[in-house]
Amino acid sequence: MTTRSGPAHGRPGPSPGAIMSERPQLINLAYRFLGSLAEAEDAVQETYARWYAMSRREQEAIDSPGAWLTRVTGRICLDVLGSARARRERYVGEWIPEPLPGGTEWLNGRAGGGDPADRVALDESVDMAFLVVLESMTPAERVAFILHDVFRYPFTEVAAIVDRTPAACRQLASSARRRVRAARTPAAPTAQQARVMRDFKQAWEAKDIAALVGLLNPAATMTVDGGGRTGAALHPVTGAERIAHYILDIDARAPGMTLLNRSVNGRPGLVAQHAGTTVTVAAFAVTDDLITHIWAVRNPEKLRPWATPRT
């Protein structure tokens, strides 16, 4: 568990710098728990609010502040996940996890001189296909699996966060692992996916239906998240030809769109901009040179990290 040991009782407590140095770990955990950067930031902010609401004596009595911060963040995220199901039943259309830019594309004050604590480490555990599988888990399964299988926390520490026995946490992680294995398909190497993305972008720009269809698996699925805020299919679009026509219909409704090859959650993807504003961020699953799934996020609330930087 990535934490720092606190002081013994009666000795000076941890410095503000030491406490805040835990923030990157907490943001990384919370994003994987929740699939939303905005909600992750809120959860971590609430964790720090609870820390600073304690007296100095109460803080000094905590042997490992890092472990305390992790435990509180995990419990806050469990509560958020519990309420998220009810919220998503009222959500308009399909719900997709919030997409993240790549390192050099981390915008809206998060690139260059931005706060590195607000970045999420981009690895296979934030791949969009993986995050979608996490959405199928119960809150306790998701938290136990991420803590143990992704971040390598021992089950004794996981138990303190999910308020279960270590044996129960082991069962939760095992159940989650089965879900991941059942849903996973072989992913194309990054270079191969990047080539497919370039070809797909070229076909889209050329409005070449045949070329688009040729890059899609015949049984491909496209899921679009508009959140009721912008035009989006309310249900997944299935089949290569239907997806190709749907994409070009979007293009016809917003002529003059600019397509950009960008890293989305650590994998090659596409970004569509209109009049300088990012309107769609699309993540892809590619197997055997064919696109098997497209996750297109159009809800502007989820595109804030992709906002054009101020000049």
Score class of each variant (00 low, 15 high):
I291E: 12
T292Y: 04
L290S: 14
A296S: 13
V281G: 03
F284L: 06
V279K: 13
E301G: 06
I291V: 14
E301N: 08
P305C: 10
V281N: 05
V286C: 10
F284D: 05
H293E: 13
A283Q: 05
T292M: 05
N299Q: 01
L303W: 01
D289F: 12
I291R: 10
E301P: 01
N299S: 06
R298A: 00
V286R: 12
L303S: 01
N299G: 02
I291Y: 08
T277F: 00
F284T: 06
T278E: 06
A282P: 03
A283C: 05
L290R: 15
V281C: 03
P305F: 04
D288F: 10
V286M: 09
I291N: 09
L290D: 10
V281T: 06
K302S: 01
D289P: 09
H293K: 13
V279T: 14
V286I: 10
V297L: 03
D288H: 15
I294P: 07
N299I: 03
D289C: 10
E301F: 03
T287H: 14
P300N: 05
H293C: 11
P305S: 08
A282T: 14
W295Q: 09
P305K: 04
P300D: 02
R304N: 00
A285Q: 15
A282K: 05
H293I: 03
L290V: 13
D289T: 13
H293Y: 10
V281E: 04
K302E: 00
I294H: 03
R298F: 03
T278D: 06
A285T: 15
T277E: 13
T287C: 11
A283I: 06
W295L: 03
A285Y: 07
A283G: 10
P305Y: 04
P305M: 08
P300R: 04
R304T: 11
A296C: 07
L303G: 01
D289H: 14
W295M: 09
L303E: 02
R298M: 08
A283E: 07
I294K: 07
R304K: 10
N299Y: 04
R298G: 00
T292N: 11
L303I: 01
V281F: 02
H293R: 14
V286F: 12
K302I: 00
L290E: 14
I291H: 12
A296W: 03
T280G: 01
L303K: 00
V297H: 03
T287I: 06
T277D: 12
P305E: 09
T278S: 09
V279C: 08
A282G: 10
F284Q: 05
D289M: 12
A285M: 12
F284Y: 15
L303C: 00
D289Y: 11
K302M: 05
A282F: 01
T280P: 00
P305V: 11
L290I: 08
V286L: 09
D289R: 14
T292E: 14
T287L: 12
A282V: 08
N299F: 04
L290G: 10
R298D: 00
V281L: 02
I291G: 10
T287S: 15
T280V: 14
V297P: 02
P305D: 06
L290P: 12
V297M: 06
P305I: 08
F284G: 05
R304E: 09
V286D: 09
G276H: 11
A285F: 09
A296Q: 10
L290T: 14
G276K: 11
I291M: 05
T278F: 04
G276I: 07
P300T: 05
T292D: 12
T277L: 06
P300L: 03
L290H: 15
